[in-house]
Simulated scan of single mutants.
Amino acid sequence: MYQFGQFTGKIVLILFLILVISALGIRNKKSLPLILLFIFGWTLYVLPMELRPFFKGNSTVLFWFGIIPSFGCAFALPIFCLRNKSLNYIESKRKLLIYSLYTFGLLLAYELLELIKGLGTFDWLDLMMTILGLVTLNIIFQNLKSKFEPIFEK
């Protein structure tokens, strides 16, 4: 049953990737920077979890593979919310910040649920990587205006 659950989880992650890419507008070349940002975050979320079993004896790699998914998840989730192309660039910056705060709240709630006995461990480093991912995403979006502004032209 455990292996079936892992297999199902992998299928869901791949389907989510396809859904998001199509929602962001794969046919519209202007959407490519947004899609690439999402794929970057999604890869940082998925790849370390898939590679962990191959590094069981290396505590340094396992440490980084344990916290990098938090960065990737925080980096990718707000991008999905920008699929509404009726926004202009200034509105999209504001929405990205709001979605980033929602994402932080969601991931904070997840970490707090970890405190319930048997569900895992609360990890401050996961929260720090979440904040770092959200801040990095917003800085990239702000500083690469020339890449993102055409996506939100009305």
Rank of each mutant, 00 (worst) to 15 (best):
I21D: 13
I21S: 15
S22M: 12
S22C: 05
S22W: 11
L24G: 01
L24M: 05
G25W: 09
G25S: 08
R27V: 00
R27L: 13
N28A: 09
S31T: 00
L32R: 12
L34I: 00
L36Y: 07
L36T: 04
L37W: 03
F38V: 01
F38N: 09
I39P: 07
W42A: 14
W42K: 09
L44H: 05
L44D: 02
Y45D: 13
V46D: 10
L47A: 14
E50I: 02
R52G: 01
R52Q: 13
F54D: 04
F55K: 07
F55L: 06
K56T: 11
G57T: 10
G57V: 06
N58M: 08
V61E: 11
V61Q: 13
L62E: 05
F63N: 04
F63R: 10
W64A: 09
F65I: 10
F65R: 11
G66L: 03
I67E: 03
I67L: 02
I68H: 03
P69K: 00
P69A: 03
F71H: 09
F71E: 03
F71C: 06
G72C: 04
G72Q: 01
C73Y: 07
C73H: 00
C73K: 05
C73V: 06
A74H: 01
A74R: 01
A74S: 10
F75E: 07
F75V: 01
P78I: 06
P78F: 05
I79F: 12
I79Y: 13
C81M: 10
C81S: 13
R83F: 15
R83K: 15
R83Y: 09
N84C: 05
L87N: 07
Y89G: 08
I90C: 00
E91G: 06
E91A: 13
S92T: 15
S92E: 05
S92F: 05
K93Y: 00
R94Y: 07
K95V: 14
K95A: 13
L96C: 03
I98T: 14
I98V: 15
I98N: 01
Y99F: 15
Y99W: 12
Y99K: 04
S100Y: 05
S100W: 06
S100K: 02
L101C: 07
L101Q: 05
Y102H: 03
Y102I: 14
Y102R: 04
F104L: 14
G105L: 10
G105E: 08
L106N: 07
L107R: 04
A109H: 00
L113G: 14
L113F: 15
L115P: 00
L115W: 11
L115R: 13
G118P: 05
G118L: 09
L119Q: 12
L119K: 14
G120K: 12
G120V: 14
G120Q: 13
F122S: 08
F122C: 05
F122N: 08
W124S: 08
W124R: 02
W124E: 04
D126L: 04
D126A: 09
D126E: 14
L127M: 11
M128C: 11
M128D: 01
M128P: 00
L132M: 12
G133T: 06
G133S: 08
L134Q: 03
V135M: 11
V135I: 15
N138E: 07
I139T: 10
I140F: 12
I140G: 04
Q142R: 07
Q142C: 00
N143W: 02
N143F: 08
N143G: 05
L144K: 11
L144N: 15
S146I: 03
S146K: 12
S146D: 10
